[in-house]
């Protein structure tokens, strides 16, 4: 049978309703006189009819009465997302109920107290006497002196505590009220951070190399 160029290209589009209206009208008039195109169209129609018929008949035989139940089962089976699972966990343990509010409050107060205590403890540890004087200290020793204590700390305001050095910069306005001749005085000046530590003690000789 002689082939028509439209049969391959335009007939499927016509069959699928994808041709613009003008071209569709032209194709319908063309079909009246073109046997290959008519045959191509009827092949497509018959193919569609058979495929959809087979599927439709199979669908007719399916009982959908338990279909919804199956979806609900699937929904129960499906694992929820992490935020949803956390919410479910909270709900399961009734942690959102008012009954547990006092327990949460007590736990929060305990945490806060422990936090404050730990903070205070670490501050005390820092302000306790460190092994002084650090490197670079200039000392003036006296023979009967036994221990050394920091007496005056002068510091840069932005550098109040320096745990690495073990020095607590408590004030930059301390005054030396008296200084006996037996006292040992050490002066440590750090030009890098503009700090000066004056160390006054009874005897530095045992502690400084």
């Amino acid at each position: 049978m002689a082939m028509c160029p439209h049969a391959e290209r335009l007939i499927p589009l016509l069959h699928d309703g994808e041709l613009p209206s003008l071209l569709r009208r032209e194709m319908h008039s063309h079909l009246v006189s073109c046997l290959p195109c008519t045959r191509a169209l009827s092949l497509l129609e018959r193919g569609q009819e058979l495929v959809s018929q087979v599927i439709d008949e199979e669908i007719e035989g399916i009982d959908f009465s338990t279909f919804w139940q199956g979806i609900e089962d699937k929904l129960r089976e499906s694992r929820p997302s992490w935020p949803m699972r956390f919410r479910l966990w909270v709900e399961r343990w009734h942690l959102t109920q008012p009954l547990y509010a006092p327990a949460w409050a007590v736990a929060a107060v305990l945490l806060l107290t422990v936090g404050i205590l730990l903070q205070q403890r670490s501050t005390t540890a820092i302000t306790q006497s460190p092994t002084f004087p650090p490197e670079g200290i200039a000392t003036q020793s006296s023979p009967d002196a036994r221990s050394a204590q920091p007496a005056l700390v002068s510091e840069h305001p932005s550098n109040r505590n320096d745990p690495e050095d073990g020095v607590a910069f408590v004030s930059n306005q301390a005054q030396i009220e008296s200084l006996s001749s037996s006292d040992t005085v050490a002066v440590w000046n750090d030009p890098g951070n503009n700090s000066t530590v004056i160390w006054i003690g009874s005897d530095m000789s045992e502690e400084t190399p």
């Binding site: 599927i55 399916i62 199956g70 699937k74 929904l75 499906s78």
Partner: peptide
């Protein structure tokens, strides 16, 4: 939806299960 799944899988049980799973996905 079952018609599509059935046409693709040729097995009624599989088709129903796939579509139920699809609807569950849709809802979630």
């Amino acid at each position: 939806a079952v018609a599509i799944a059935l046409g693709m899988l040729h097995d009624r049980e599989d088709a129903l299960e796939v579509v139920q799973e699809a609807f569950a996905k849709v809802f979630t």
